[in-house]
Design a protein around this nucleic acid. Structure first.
Lengths: 317, 317
DNA sequence: TTGTATGCGTTATCAT
DNA sequence: ATGATAACGCATACAA
């Protein structure tokens, strides 16, 4: 029976048929605990996801699930506190207790040296989503954040904007630096000087986006467009503009990044870079569940510029 | 060792100390699979959550986790497709394979007769969140949806509104009918006739909210306020108003329900009923993990009216 | 209060 | 290609 369920080679055709009939008749479901105890696999993977955006978390989980069902693998999802001091211990505990077949790490944990160390020491398989360092130690999925941010910046430039504010994410996220760099390089491409005053640091969440936009709009020479490197921050920027009575995009264009549902739920709907989170998650799970490859694979996923109503051409003064 | 870890009675003080020392020294972590196989508990629970709102899902998971850490229990979270035809089979498979210690069901699954039947037949413990039928078959957590909706409606009435549009949720959610009833009763309280034309059915998501609001605003005698029974639908109503060039709350007041983060991310921020999803989730997990009670417990959680800028007094024509 | 043995339901190894 | 059997790491019933 075990041999049939695990699709081993060398199983007679009639034996297989008999077993399958019995399985169907008895509505038999193998006990996961017993399988885990006796075998090498536990048919469980875990998602280590500490992210401020529920949309992101949801998409990650959905993508992983989509891939897992094919293999009958379950996902353990533990929302982690951002400031948990026990993260390392929690992960070690998880690994020891459940013997998960693998872990999927999202930013910023995907770049925590201590976590990576631990996992390597323990010989646990893991896949990283959007990592920024030590790319060769494990498989990963990613989008070209720099190119994506450059694309958006170029879009704003093509609309006539010359002073473009940029709201960066928290530096603990590798993607944050990559997006900033793309913004800067697109400006350079057009011979526009990089003005540090136009760059503010947020933490990928709404409140920080609102505060950063507030600061930008209070500048003696405020920008005519704001590009926030997350949807939540862009929504914050939108609110800041509304509070100041600025029409969007009439007086201020606003752009986001990620293209979560939020981008379409605000007014005006946000022009964004679509990061296919769900697809990245699916690929991450695929990397984890597929038979081990010889080489460490880095799998790139395509991004997309989504133009909506929050950006428009700069008005002639 | 087993006796110490499981806090059994009749363990000598010195034996306990020795064991604990060894556990600490070896960094010992009991194997979950072995515990599950040998014992009665699996130290795993599952969340069956099919909800259109990522915020809701996130809050549910967070609340459950908050309670689970205390017991060293893990949560299996599988996002379910809304239209999955295999839901019943998936759940049965989950139960058989993992022998979870219990399940937490959220709407609308918390009222699916087939699922409840299955769980009862199999003798699986489960807790329901916001159920509407057969309340006596299992513990549950809930808020008084009718009273909450009545409170919001009363708030709008006190602002001078007399024609209040109501966007209901999908009827498969028990909460949907409860909220509608609260709205109706508050109107009756003020001697205002219930006008069916002012009630539209949505499906708790943004798009349906936008469509419903669109229909309400197209009425010969449009409402001066719209009360949507979810934040997503309220955000949709907001967008519909903006598209029509209506100022909010100047020309149209908009109110939501749930008080997810979304309520604060849109413009203007939404007046809502705060449903403490996280707390409900925590209590649900508590009901599941606490030693079995004699009686089926129904645990009520308090709601709260949150007044923000999307509602205002009706303007004199 | 503590030691001991049996068994949980599979996988994997060794024979056949 | 298939049958038999020893682990897997704990909980638990029973004995001491």
């Amino acid at each position: 029976m075990s041999r049939v369920l695990n699709k081993e080679r060398y199983v007679g055709e009639e034996t297989r048929a008999k077993v399958e009939a019995a399985v169907a008749a008895l509505n038999f479901r193998p006990n996961a605990a017993a399988r885990s105890l006796a075998g090498k696999r536990s048919f469980q993977i875990a998602l280590i996801c500490d992210n401020p955006s529920p949309y992101y978390v949801y998409e990650m989980q959905s993508g992983i699930r989509d891939r897992c069902v094919a293999d009958g693998v379950r996902m353990i999802a533990q929302p982690y506190d951002r400031n948990s001091t026990t993260l390392l211990d929690d992960i070690e505990n998880l690994v020891d207790a459940t013997h998960v077949d693998g872990l999927i790490l999202t930013p910023p944990v995907s770049d925590y040296p201590q976590v990576l160390d631990l996992l390597q020491r323990r010989g646990v398989r893991f896949v990283r989503v959007s990592p920024g360092t030590a790319l060769e130690i494990a498989p990963s999925t990613f989008i070209d954040n720099a190119a994506a941010a450059a694309t958006m910046t170029a879009h704003l430039l093509s609309l006539g904007h010359r002073r473009i504010g940029f709201i960066a994410g928290h530096p603990s996220y590798a993607t944050s630096g990559q997006r900033l760099q793309g913004y800067a390089s697109a400006l350079g491409q057009q011979g526009i000087a990089f003005d540090p005053a136009l760059v503010r640091e947020g933490s990928y969440d709404f409140a920080s986006g609102a505060a950063a936009a507030e600061a930008l709009l209070a500048l003696p020479q405020p920008p005519t467009a704001v590009f926030a490197s997350s949807d939540d921050m862009a929504a914050g920027a939108l609110t800041a503009a509304h509070r100041r009575g600025l029409s969007v995009p009439g007086q201020l264009s606003v752009a986001g990044f990620d293209d979560t549902a939020l981008a379409g739920f605000v007014w005006p709907p946000l022009t964004t870079i679509r990061q296919p989170t769900r697809k990245m998650a699916y690929q991450a799970a695929d990397l984890l569940l597929a038979p081990a490859h010889a080489a460490i694979e880095r799998r790139e996923v395509a991004y997309e510029l989504i133009v909506r109503e929050s950006t428009g051409s700069v008005t002639k003064a």
